[in-house]
Design a protein around this nucleic acid. Structure first.
Lengths: 225, 225
DNA sequence: AGATAATTGTGAAATAAATAACGATAAAAA
DNA sequence: TTTTTATCGTTATTTATTTCACAATTATCT
């Protein structure tokens, strides 16, 4: 039995993966039959070489003088991201954010179906969010089993996020979409995607800081000359 | 007048900046007086060398055998991100998401104050979101001028996002926080941060796809042996 | 006070990613 | 049909980022 343990699985680099997502989004909006690496590049804001390089990770190939077949490429990306397969999801935390997510249009286009909403606040239980009635935390196990749920969305305050994560993991959830601004500690085989809005806020703030400094500098330079 | 145009402004690399944000978040949660690069690393999930290298972009220095002074470091990061300075922000799109953002606790901790909400739907105008009454789009210019608003949040459907972006830019907005799943085209001096939730959803989906493939493979291997 | 241990800061080496260069191919034009 | 042109796939080069290695420093221990 030869080398079995270390067969490298051709992992797509993270930066490439992030751009592939943008290509996917673009391809869904485009009308034409073919598209060139140059056009993709311009519309997502990168350069053609980058696009071509990224696409070498896929099977789809372009034709010289024509470009890539939009539909073929789109489908391969859909496949890559599993967009066609519907994934059942539960959401914990029936606050404003939870409400927004349940009502977010477009999840269905990505094969996400929120099947239940949970909250630990007894006052919220039984109330409706969209079409879904809020359930008590004890029901999580039952729902996960019944609907073969794979993903849990956490939108509770950061103080209870870890606790919720542990419950989800104990019920068999393998992917967590975490909206709480805290790092969750989970077993290795559980995948967490953080969606910390305060983090991107910092990007914006930082940009404004830099800008302010530049303006100050240019004033100083103007005075000197 | 010698080299003035190309004085390099010691730009912090993007990956480093992203980690600095995590350090900042961590430091706000920590009780102790000092912290080592090793501990920071463990708690945000990286290695100590990386942390130390990142911190070379800051002025704060650690002490051998002691680590970094939590408060000093925290304050320098606050400064870097401009967290202390309150930035006035307007929000366009009074839907579920807009509602969630207005009610999002924790923005104030980051020096963000939403001063007004706008929507183009006449039915929504005058209704309340949190403490704020929804205003018509025509009022944007007035509010931006009156409150010296620098940042606009877009949470309208993707179809109207570009249009809204153009309005904001024309009124003098310099930073846009874009929740619509589309790429905005704006002048060079306007900074856009995208918060496309469907994108991170794809990350999760992709992970599940890979996982599924691995399971299949291991079954096949099991059969063979 | 001197030895020991922990932990830093940083330059060098290794790795990863982006960009450039270019031959190959297919469509369009001559 | 031949030539020209646009565009691809891929290899080479350059740039950016991470990891490694280790001297320097400071607290703690003997």
């Amino acid at each position: 039995m030869p080398d079995n343990q270390d067969r490298e699985p051709i992992v797509i680099p993270k930066p490439t993966l992030d751009r592939l997502k943008l290509y996917h989004r673009l391809l869904n909006e485009v009308e034409q039959k073919h598209i060139s690496s140059e056009e993709i590049a311009q519309r997502i804001g990168t350069n053609a070489e980058q696009v071509r390089k990224d696409l070498t990770f896929l099977k789809t190939m372009g034709k010289p003088k024509v470009g890539y077949d939009v539909e073929t490429l789109r489908q391969e990306l859909e496949e890559l991201f599993g967009v066609k397969k519907t994934t059942k999801v539960i959401l914990v935390g029936a606050g404003h954010l939870g409400n927004a997510l349940v009502n977010y249009p477009g999840f269905e286009n990505y094969g996400i179906e929120i099947v239940a909403v949970f909250d630990k606040d007894p006052k919220k239980i039984g109330s409706f969010i969209g079409e879904l009635s809020v359930l008590p935390m004890q029901d999580i196990g039952r729902v996960v089993k019944r609907f073969h749920v794979e993903i849990g969305i956490i939108c509770v305050p950061k103080e209870s996020a870890q606790e919720v994560a542990e419950i989800l993991v104990s019920k068999g959830i393998k992917g967590i979409w975490n909206f709480a601004p805290t790092r969750l500690i989970v077993p290795n085989d559980v995948f967490v995607v953080d969606e910390d809005m305060t983090q991107s806020l910092l990007t914006l703030k930082h940009y404004l800081e830099i800008k302010k400094k530049k303006i100050q500098e240019s004033h100083q330079n103007a005075e000197k000359s």
